[in-house]
Each structure stands twice: as C-alpha cells, then as structure tokens.
Amino acid sequence: MIKIDHVSKSYDGGATSAVRDLSLEIKSGEIFGLLGPNGAGKSTLLNMLAGVLAPSSGTIELDGVNVTTDPLAAKRNLCYVSDSPDHLLRLKGHEFLRFIADVYEVPDAVRGPRIEELAREYGMEGELDNQIQSYSHGMRQKMMIMGALLPDPAVWILDEPMTGLDPKASWLLKQSMRRHADAGKTVLFSTHVLDVAEKVVDRVGVIAHGELLFVGTVDEMREHFKSNGSLEEMFLELTSEDSPFAQGAEPGTDPAGEKDGDAADQEAK
C-alpha cells in the first residue's frame, strides 16, 4: 500500500511548485496508473515515493513505513524504474543484476534461476555478458525492468516504463504488472500513453500542474463526465487549459464547485 498525505514539493524557496498538497492512497493488489502531460509533476511525485527527492511538506508511507524518517526500511519494500534507463552503464548485464540481488539480499538459490527466467522472458540471454552502455535504449529499459522484478518487492514504481520497449516486451511488462498486483502487491506507474493505461489499470489518477484532478476507475471517470468516449478524450477534457479543473477548481469538485461523494467522504474522515 502507498499512502500519500498532503505532499507538496517546491523549489526556489517556494517560488516554483512541482507538486501541490497531493493526497492519495493506492491499495495493495491493484495497478494504479498516474496520467498526465509532460511537466505535470508525475516524475517528481514518483521520485519522492522512491526516496530520491524529499517532500517539502506532507508524508509518504509504503506499507506503513515512512519514506522520510525510515528511508532504508521503506526502500526495502520497493523497486523503482526511473524515466531514464541510463544507469551503471559500465557494468555488464549479469553484474548489474547480481548487484541488485546483493542490495536486496536475494538468496543465492533464488537469484540464479530468477535471472535466467527474466533474461529468457525478455530476450536478453545473449546480452548479459555485454556492458549496458553497448545496449540500445530498449535493451537498457528491459534491463532496468528485470532489475526491478528480480527482488519481487511489495511496491513496484515505474516512470513511463513502456518507453522504448518493443511490442513483445511491452506485453510482457503488462503481464508482469498484473501478476504482481494479483499476488497482493502494489504497482504504480506513470504514463502519457493513454491507451496503455486504459487496458492495464485498476484505477487511474490524473495529474496536471502538480495537482491531482481525478482518482477512480475508467468507468467512474466516464460516469463522472457523462461520456462514452475514450480515456484520451476524458483526459484531454481534464487537462485542457479551459477546463474548470485546470483553471483552479478544487480537485474532487464538479464544475459548479460542489464536492463529489468520494471527496466529501474523504474530507469527513
């Protein structure tokens, strides 16, 4: 479970806000998609969840562990795939995976078969003896995904994970995400590829200008906007400049300014 409570992130002494008073709870056993245009605050939020950035205010908990006050324990519960796969490029593929296994204390009896299985699934068997810097972008992305899957963490956080993947690898990743959630664990991924989210997620959150504008299932989003259109059409309505939400209406309200049922219930709690 991921619990985000009134989290903000600002820069330049508070002059620039990347994330604004964001609260969200992501359940164990679900795939949650974070949707938003480039610059919406998605990567900033995920970096705070992973402990790469510290929030300016608010708290974040992963399975009950506070990311700020107990960072090592929190990080043992998660694996993070950033929006760039260009990490530890001088390591060979097998060296990178063994390094990840060491960090997460994956037993020797488990890591070997698991690495072989992942390399076979993602078509990387013949590449593990090569340096990561020799890989294509898509191959590097596969390696980062394999590293995140290897420890089988309770929380899996992925930032634009489909970027650069071929269709087979994208399909495999979606299957891995589903299996992870079905095992009672948590998957959070960001994307601006709306068709991907529509086919994979249990719930979605839409973020723009650092604010969370909507949380719910795709069907709930359709009902909320009385639309039978695609997720893309609803997303564009949510994030367009002339939307009442983008113009500063309080998240969780309708255009008339009245809170919807979920927002009112959360506030009452």
Rank of each mutant, 00 (worst) to 15 (best):
L46V: 10
T59H: 09
E105A: 12
L88T: 04
C79T: 14
A119C: 04
V103K: 00
M48S: 00
A101M: 02
V110M: 14
L49Y: 02
D102N: 07
S56W: 13
S43W: 15
L53V: 14
N130L: 12
E121T: 15
Y122M: 15
P85K: 01
D129H: 09
V110K: 11
S134G: 11
E95L: 10
S43P: 15
E121V: 10
G33M: 06
K27L: 11
A74Y: 00
E116S: 11
S57D: 10
D108P: 05
E117Q: 14
L24T: 06
G123W: 15
M48F: 00
A74E: 01
C79E: 06
I132H: 09
S56E: 09
K27P: 10
L22Y: 05
D102Q: 08
L128M: 02
A73P: 06
V103C: 02
H137S: 10
A54I: 12
M124E: 03
K42Q: 13
S82V: 04
L34F: 10
E117K: 12
G112P: 09
A109R: 12
T59L: 03
G51I: 01
F96M: 12
G29T: 04
R90I: 06
E117A: 15
E127R: 06
D83A: 14
K75Q: 01
L91Q: 07
R111C: 14
A119R: 03
G93W: 03
T59N: 08
L128H: 03
G58F: 00
E116W: 05
Y104K: 15
A50D: 01
R98P: 07
L78F: 02
L34G: 13
A54G: 08
P85D: 01
Y80P: 08
V103D: 00
L72Q: 09
A101P: 04
E116K: 13
S28T: 13
A74V: 01
Q131D: 08
D102M: 11
S23D: 13
